[in-house]
């Protein structure tokens, strides 16, 4: 009798556990359906909003989104936001869903703008959207990206690359913003590039550069910083609108290029600057857009959030929705220029 009881107990625990995990991960889903029902009933005051995050739960982008969401709720009266991670095809599936959703202010997204734009420009499979047509609501964060070589590398400045007389080995994951940035960089500065695609992630390319397998790679300054300080890497170029205070001797991509090359780097710099942003479907109602932008602005200026973000090493660098939209429009006008380079970079690895 007793044995039977303990068996039943074990089963009960197993079942509860699987339920808890399933709910914990995707508690949003059943709630979602109820929301739709409520919308039909036109409960106008309660706004059930879905935030699409086309990135893996628990990783950088998702952490940022979930950190900020409570503060948007706080400053947007009536808003109840559910984060929905729609992963797949490098985020294309999630962004497609945003593109198709109604511009009623009840669906918006948060992710890296460069990867959305580049997916479109490079003609990635399955893309249905036009990145610059979305309604931009505000930037949460951006950080400089750095081109760094290994600590023992023969190169000490960006000019050395052009003088090398051989293709520069660039370990890469392929198809991400750093892959395309490198292609445009090589084109604008006139050095030969050998993109070695197939590395599994940023950690792998970083190690390849430290070991000397590859010459250099592009990564977020925050990631590279400790390795630079330890002498394992040397920074040669920054992708930022102006020099980074901490590294006053490292030039920006805009400084070392001229003419058409500089125009290319402008597109890239602008694009990287938009980085982690909130955006809604195209053609959102101007009134709703204004309200939404104001809420995002207040949320991202909330001292409590800024403090929390700094502690978690996910700093906020806010840019107002309207200015962001202007930046995106600028990018839209010039982005066509780099399309050829992107196509060539892709053709090179095929």
């Amino acid at each position: 009798m007793f044995k039977k009881k303990s068996l039943i107990l074990i089963f009960a625990i197993l079942l509860i556990m699987s339920l808890v995990t399933a709910c914990g991960q995707k508690a949003q889903e059943p709630a979602q359906k109820e929301e739709v029902k409520e919308q039909v009933k036109e409960k106008v005051k309660e706004k059930d909003i879905t935030l699409i995050v086309p990135n893996t739960p628990g990783k950088g982008m998702d952490t940022y989104a979930r950190m900020i969401v409570p503060y948007i709720e706080k400053h947007y009266p009536g808003a109840k936001i559910t984060v929905k991670n729609i992963v797949g095809a490098g985020g294309v599936i999630g962004i497609n869903q945003l593109w198709q959703s109604k511009p009623d202010g009840l669906t918006f997204a948060f992710t890296s703008f460069p990867s959305v734009l580049l997916a479109e420009l490079s003609g990635s499979e399955g893309v249905q959207f036009e990145a610059t047509k979305f309604t931009y609501l505000g930037r949460a964060a951006t950080e400089p990206r750095v081109f760094a070589v290994g600590g023992k590398s023969e190169f000490n400045s960006i000019e050395d690359l052009a003088k090398a007389g051989r293709p520069i080995k660039f370990p890469s994951q392929g198809m991400d913003e750093d892959f395309f940035t490198a292609a445009v960089m090589a084109e604008s500065m006139g050095f030969e590039l050998n993109q070695i695609t197939g590395y599994e992630g940023n950690a792998d390319t970083a190690l390849a550069v430290i070991k000397g397998e590859g010459d250099g790679h592009i990564t977020a300054l925050g990631d590279a910083d400790p390795m630079i300080k330890a002498g394992d890497k040397k920074p040669l170029l920054m992708f930022a609108p102006e020099r980074v205070a901490e590294y006053p001797d490292v030039p920006t991509a805009l400084e070392v290029t001229t003419g058409e090359g500089q125009n290319f780097m402008k597109v890239i710099t602008n694009m990287l600057e938009v980085h982690r942003s909130f955006f809604g479907p195209p053609g959102m109602d101007p009134e709703v857009t204004r309200e939404f932008r104001a809420a995002v602005a207040k949320a991202l200026a909330d001292p409590e959030l800024i403090d929390k973000a700094a502690k978690a090493n996910n700093p906020i660098t806010f840019m107002e929705g309207e200015r962001l939209q202007q930046k995106v429009d600028e990018i839209a006008a010039t982005a066509e220029k780099i399309k050829g380079t992107l196509a060539k970079a892709l053709a090179d690895i095929k």
């Binding site: 992963v87 499979e125 892709l346």
Partner: peptide, 20 residues
């Protein structure tokens, strides 16, 4: 799915689901 080296999709039959 997506070939990590040449970024070509293989055996996906045009579906986005199989791309990963």
């Amino acid at each position: 799915g997506m070939d990590p080296v040449s970024a070509t999709s293989r055996y996906t039959f045009g579906t986005l689901f199989l791309m990963d």
